[in-house]
Design a protein around this nucleic acid. Structure first.
Lengths: 339, 339
DNA sequence: TTGTACGCGTTATCAA
DNA sequence: TTGATAACGCGTACAA
C-alpha cells in the first residue's frame, strides 16, 4: 500500500512537501500541490491513521463502554443509543471503539483502553450508585463523560435521563386518576438509575400527601419473581390499584400476572413503566410510559464527549434530560369496587 | 503518563532491556526482569497501543460495519449480534471499531478504515444482492468476512443465516397444517436476505406441488403499506388463509390488519415470520417464527474473522447457519369455512 | 517555496 | 545478558 514516501518519490519531491501539499498548507506552489494530489490519487494513497496518531498524540477515536447485555429487553435501548452516537461521531470525524464490560470494577478492558491511548475520550455507561470507574478516570485525566449518575458528590461530567422527574410524572398521573395505593417494582438498587427513579416515586407520594406503604415497594425484582410477587400484592386486604414498573419487561410481566389473576388492565389494575420501547408500544394494551428519544440521547452524549475532547479545559458540563410521560391505555381511574 | 523510556531510566537500564523484560523474553536475567516489572507497576506503566501498532504493523482491532438503523424493529437483532461479537473479540485480545454506514457504496467511512490501516480485519454486514464493497475489499487484500451473501458467484468468505431453509420450514409447516394459499410479504429485493428468503417460499411451494399465485406475493413492503395491502388480500375472492412476513414488524402489522378486518389469528388467518425477537415472543398471540441465536451469530462471525486475520492464507470459509422453526399460537389449520 | 532533521513509543536486529 | 541503532509513517521546527 502506498505511503507518503511513495507519493513523494513519484512526484520527485521530498516527503515534507508532499505532506504539506496533501494537507493544504499555503506555503506550497499551486502547481506542486496539484501534482502531488494527482500522484496521491493515482497511487490510491491514504494516510496511515496509526502513524498520524503516534505523531500527533491524538487518535480521532472515542471509546464507548457499554454493559454486556443481561436481559434481552435492554437491547432496544442501547442500539438506538449507539446509532445516534456513531452518527454524531462520524459527522465530526471520529471513530468509535467499542468495549462491552462484564463488570463495573476497573476491569482490564478499561485499563487497556485508557492506558493504551487508543482513544481521545471515553463514554462510560451503566453507572452504578458507587462506581469506582469514575475516580479511576479522573485520576488518569482522560477526557470522559458518564452516561448516568452516581449518588453523592457529582463532580464529573455526565449526561443522564432525569429518572426522578420521569417517575414522578408517572405517579402523579396515577394519583390524578384517583389512585392511592400504587405499587413500585424496581431493579437492583446498585444501579444509579434505580436510585433516582425510586426517588421520583417517593417525591410524588409525598407531594400528594399520599401514604407510603413499604409492602408495596419491591427492589431488585427479576422477571421470574413477578408471578409470586403479584399474587401476594393482589391477594392483600388493601391491594394496590396501580403498579409502576421501572423496566419495560417488568411491566409486561405485571400485566400478564394480573391477567392470570383474572384482572383487567386498566379496569382493575393500572400499569405504567419507564422505557418507551417497541415492546411497550406494541403491548396489549399499549402501556403508559415515561419516554425519551434514545437516539437523541446518543447524539447528545457524543456531542458532550467530543466537546470535551476538543476543548481541553472546558467547564464541567452536567446535563439532565427530562423525559415526557406518554399516557396510553394501560392506565385509568381505579375500579369503583376496589378499596 | 509513563512511557517505556521512563521505566528504563528508573530501573537504570536501556529501553531495549526494559521492553524485553516486560514482554517476558527469556534472554533477560530473572532479577532484572523483576526489577523492571516492579518499576513498571510503580509507575503504572502500560504500553502505548498506537506505537505498538505502528511498529508491528497490526492493530489488534477489527472493524464492524453495520447499517444505520432504518427501522426500530431491526434493533434487537443487531445489539445481540454486537454483544456476541464484542465478547469473542475481547476474549481473543481484539478491540472493535464500529462504523455505521449510511450507504452500501464504497463510502468514505469504509475507505478511511481500510486505508488508514486502523483495523486488521473487517466484518461487513447488511450485504446487498449486488454489493460493490466486496470487490473493493478483495482488491485491497484486507482480511474480511461478509455477514450475508450476494447473488451470483460467492468467492468470498461469509457467514449467513440460511434464509431459504428457514422460510422453507415455515411454509412447509403451513402446508402441513392444510394451507394452500399462503401470501408472502417481503422487504426490498436488493437485500441479500430478501432474495434468499423468497427462494425458500418458492421452493416450499414447488416441493408441495402447490400453486404459486403472483397476487399473493409482495416485495418491498413497508409497515405503512400493510393496512391497504391486507385489505386487498383479504377482500379477494380467493383470499389467503396464511401469511408469511419476512420481518417481525411486518408480521405484527399483518396481525393488526387482520384483526381490523374482523379476523381472528390463527382461526381465520395464520401468520408466521422470520426473526424470533422479543416483539414476536410477546405478541398476542405469540408468533410462529424462524429462529436463531443472534448472539451466537455474532460470536461465530467474530471467530471466522479472527481466524482469517491471524491465519493469513486460510482456505475460504463460508458458513450457513440453518435456523429452526418455533411453532407458536399464530399458526393453525385453515378455518373450515375458508375457500 | 522546498528540503533536512527530528521525534512520537515501541520492537527487532545485531553487536558487545 | 545487555545496549546501541534502526525502523514503522507521519508531521513540523528550522534552515536553505
Amino acid at each position: 500500500m502506498a505511503t507518503l514516501k511513495d507519493v513523494a518519490r513519484q512526484a520527485g519531491l521530498s516527503v515534507t512537501t508532499a505532506s504539506r501539499a496533501l494537507n493544504n498548507y499555503d506555503d506550497v506552489a499551486a502547481a506542486t500541490r496539484e501534482r502531488v494530489q494527482a500522484v496521491a490519487r493515482a497511487l490510491d494513497y491514504h494516510p496511515n491513521a496509526t502513524a498520524r496518531s503516534l505523531q500527533g498524540s491524538h487518535t480521532s477515536t472515542v471509546g464507548l463502554m457499554i454493559p454486556r447485555i443481561r436481559h434481552r429487553a435492554h437491547n432496544a435501548f442501547w442500539l438506538e443509543f449507539i446509532g445516534g452516537l456513531a452518527a454524531t461521531c462520524a459527522a465530526r470525524g471520529f471513530d468509535v471503539l467499542l468495549s462491552t464490560s462484564e463488570t463495573h470494577d476497573v476491569a482490564p478492558g478499561l485499563q487497556r483502553v485508557v492506558h493504551g491511548r487508543r482513544v481521545d475520550g471515553l463514554l462510560v455507561c451503566d453507572i452504578r450508585c458507587h462506581d469506582p470507574r469514575i475516580a479511576y478516570l479522573q485520576e488518569r485525566r482522560l477526557p470522559f463523560v458518564a452516561f448516568g449518575r452516581t449518588v453523592g458528590t457529582l463532580d464529573f461530567p455526565y449526561l443522564d435521563v432525569d429518572g426522578t422527574a420521569g417517575v414522578r410524572q408517572a405517579i402523579e398521573h396515577l394519583i390524578a386518576l384517583g389512585h392511592r395505593r400504587i405499587a413500585y417494582l424496581g431493579l437492583e438498587m446498585e444501579f444509579g438509575f434505580s436510585h433516582f427513579r425510586y426517588l421520583g416515586y417517593r417525591k410524588a407520594l409525598e407531594g400528594a400527601g399520599a401514604p407510603c406503604d413499604a409492602t408495596l415497594i419491591h427492589h431488585g425484582v427479576a422477571e421470574e419473581d413477578i408471578p409470586a410477587l403479584m399474587a401476594g400484592l393482589l391477594a392483600a386486604a388493601q391491594r394496590p390499584t396501580a403498579v409502576f414498573a421501572s423496566a419495560d419487561y417488568l411491566a409486561l410481566g405485571v400485566v400478564k400476572a394480573a391477567r392470570g389473576a383474572g384482572m383487567r388492565v386498566p379496569d382493575d389494575l393500572s400499569v405504567a413503566t419507564f422505557d418507551d420501547t417497541l415492546l411497550v408500544q406494541h403491548a396489549d394494551p399499549p402501556l403508559t410510559a415515561v419516554s425519551q428519544s434514545n437516539q437523541r440521547l446518543g447524539e447528545e452524549a457524543a456531542g458532550l464527549l467530543l466537546d470535551r475532547v476538543m476543548g481541553p479545559a472546558l467547564p464541567l458540563v452536567q446535563r439532565l434530560i427530562v423525559p415526557a410521560l406518554v399516557a396510553r391505555q394501560s392506565t385509568g381511574p381505579p375500579h369503583a369496587a376496589a378499596p
